[in-house]
Write a protein that binds this DNA or RNA. Structure first.
Lengths: 309, 309
DNA sequence: ACAATAATACTCATTTCGAGTATATATGTG
DNA sequence: CACATATATACTCGAAATGAGTATTATTGT
């Protein structure tokens, strides 16, 4: 049928949180750009895609992946390898772990290096008003016709306008890409140009990472995934800081505890932390049982629980 | 590296709702089993996976896909083709449309043919108590050791126990598969055996459909996707019936309207339906604008909206 | 003793949700 | 035409969830 052949690339966004810093594991495949651990899928050796991923993520990073989740399969021409001949379709994964025991050629890097506009914990990032919005305004203005201009205006508004939706990480990255505000855009179109927003990554790895962050921010709200990133015991503030780090938002302390407590997500250990200052906080542990308990967390569609209508 | 080569298969679960019946478009690739429209990805011709899908779903079914969404990429050995030589990795898509203009070799079939245990609109399907649970009890009992028995017990409980979570469609199908209660399991293991639960499909197509239903049922709750399936104007009851058909649950009528109205999802047209009996209902249309308005629908994590903590 | 800091408890108004009742507008029947 | 039946739509009400605080308690450092 075609001369071009396909190969499948597996990439993993391996995420951890240390204190207030969400990080992703990057490897030095290439001296120039940061890369996610990745490699080809070998159908002869591997029964499933995930086992393929685990196997050589293990080799490359010495990591034993715990929680993993498939994110998305990207196959756009020109956004992966510029290597001629075979087309790479890349399947991205999200993995959650705790730090420790990684290989020497790997490195944890804060994910907001790649997405500085996504961290709203202290305040709305200044670059949005100073750099992003003016450039996007230009992008709208440069539209070839008024219809695309209108579409662009809408996208800009959804992504960076009133009402920050912390989950739209991928949408925002894609908009910045198309508007030529990230380095990858210029690299992919063959006109390298340093100095886009945030730190660039190899191939489409920043896109995969954006997908990972978006998915994780969404999932946080309805599945107890944060605990994969926590130590066996932790204080409620540590838990809150981890969630805040991931969501890129500040939470209301008292209400956060209420929520966590009411949902039965944690149980006290009776032990206490020894903080530098202030009252010691109780150490909690995750109640693994909840995974079996709560059926549907938020149903939001007026479901009826009785008989007649 | 390996002798086996990979090819990428694209499959689409094309969904529509007619009245109270959610359906999926099946084609007669094979006289024996129902199949989703599918075919190989041609990297030489196609720039993106989705354009590949659109192109020849168009050829095969004469359909112009509207809303589409990538679901998942399956690569398990033995669950796609038994054809030797090349390994097929299949990328599944969900597409939403309205009926009309499909090709002659295709057919709309109610999706509950494939998943009869998923329709709880009238009552809890009897087969759960009469057939599924007894068989799963046996599956638990037949576990090789007490640890897997415990894991199986938990899975059975999450999938079919107290508290029906209508989104766990895939989890339930996979459990039934592993327990040998669906025909595909026996076919894939080389011991064909008619008479599993529900209607079987070609390859892993029932798994893809399960993923599609699960995704759609989830998305329903936080994105206005139902409207892709509705006529340009509709009554609120028609809308409710469509949602119920997809979710496999009954909703509370008055609260459903309140929700829809409050969220500004629809606007009245001033026209009215002419029903056989009863008071005529106003015809509504979807307010496309909401796509740009509401930022994050359900945040559920105690987000702070003021200044200090 | 007391300032500073953090943990934890408790309050309160508002909104959302589930479940109903009440009323309005059709049709068909005697 | 009165009225049974069917549906649409409006409104009520209590319970729970949510957002935003204030109050109190337990520490350390001075």
């Amino acid at each position: 049928m075609s001369k071009e052949s396909v190969s499948i690339g597996l990439s993993a966004a391996i995420v951890s949180v240390e204190g207030e810093h969400p990080s992703v594991l990057v490897v030095a495949h290439d001296a120039v750009e940061d890369a996610l651990p990745f490699g080809p899928f070998d159908p002869a050796q591997q029964r499933t895609l995930e086992s393929g991923l685990r196997k050589w993520v293990g080799e490359q990073t010495r990591f034993d992946l715990g929680y993993t989740e498939q994110l998305y399969t990207f196959g756009d021409k020109g956004r992966h390898a510029s290597a001629a001949g075979t087309r790479v379709v890349s399947v991205g994964y999200l993995a959650l772990t705790r730090q420790g025991k990684e290989a020497p050629e790997t490195q944890w890097r804060g994910w907001y290096h790649y997405f500085p506009w996504e961290d709203w914990r202290d305040s709305k990032p200044l670059m949005i008003e100073s750099a992003i919005l003016p450039a996007l305004k230009k992008f709208v203005k440069d539209a070839p016709n008024s219809e695309t201009a209108e579409q662009r205006r809408e996208r800009v508004n959804v992504c960076f306008g009133e009402g920050w939706d912390e989950e739209r990480v991928l949408e925002r990255y894609e908009l910045l890409y198309e508007a030529g505000l990230v380095e990858e855009f210029w690299r992919d179109s063959g006109k390298p140009n340093k100095g886009g927003l945030g730190t660039a990554m190899l191939y489409d790895h920043r896109r995969i990472l954006a997908t990972a962050i978006a998915r994780l921010r969404g999932k946080l709200k309805y599945r107890p995934v944060v605990f994969e990133l926590m130590a066996p015991t932790f204080t409620l503030l540590e838990l809150q800081r981890a969630v805040e780090a991931l969501a890129g938002l500040r939470l209301h302390k008292q209400n956060f505890r209420r929520l966590v407590a009411e949902q039965g997500l944690v149980e006290g250990t009776g032990k206490f932390s020894a903080p530098a200052r202030g009252r010691p906080a109780e150490l909690f542990r995750f109640r693994r049982e909840v995974l079996r308990e709560r059926p549907a967390p938020g149903v939001r569609l007026g479901v009826r629980r009785s008989k007649a209508s």
